[in-house]
Amino acid sequence: MDYRIIKAETITETVKQLFTDCNYYIGDDILCALKNARENEQSEVGKNVLSQIIENDEIAADEQIPLCQDTGMAVLFVEYGDKVSVDGSFDEAVQEGVRRAYIDAYLRKSVVDDPVFDRLNTKDNTPAIIHTKIVSGDKIKITAGGKGFGSENMSAIKMITPSYGVEGVKDFVLDTVRKAGPNPCPPIVVGVGIGGTFERCAQLAKKATFREINTSNPDPRYAELEQELLEKINLMGFGPAGLGGNTTAIGVNIETSPTHIAGMPVAVNICCHAARHKTAEI
């Protein structure tokens, strides 16, 4: 079988570029949603907060500086073609890309080596969290994002059982957003994973936050649920920065997976308005 060879250095430079770009340039989907929200925001303070956020994101892009000081933990979703070979360690190539981005692009190093005891900063933001899926083809597709922890800390997972149905899903998503309140830097993007196993469900929720918010789940029933949850969240009143208003979220994205006959796990990954992700195909 013929394999397409990709240089490890190409992977490294691509990853470096993705993390640099996602921290400097907010997506058009987010910027557009923030501008629309400002038009429809009923609170004067809320309007003012949205203006500050929009101005902030424009300054970051103009001056090529991070739009938020929390440039996040590096998370990557990789679709790795089964007819591709990298001339070196793929994992090392990715970690080196993260290292170069966080050092050369003046991003904050926010990773500690040990979660409980040492908590010493690794000084280059590695290791990145890499989710790899083998797909058919001779390409490697990488979606990368920096995930800030103000919102990550507000996320939750629940092993709901099937008898609770769609109402159980709605209640859990809304309860999680309500508990988060003003803390995750609203207006937020809500990633919801439903199905799979405990860990797959959480991974889907993260993947959902990496999808553009001007897109919908391809299944119309889930697309409708996304819309309903977004409307209900915006009735809560937290508003921009949690200072009151009708813009608490700018997007709800749902990703699903087949699951077990006994289960219906739901994970809610909350993301701040700085929902940063970029994609490249090599």
Binding site: I53, I65, P66, C68, G150, L243, C272
Partner: peptide, 13 residues
């Protein structure tokens, strides 16, 4: 006091 979360580039000015 509350400053606006995520307005880091603006606040740094």
């Amino acid at each position: 006091f509350a400053a606006i979360g995520g307005a880091a580039a603006l606040l740094a000015k």
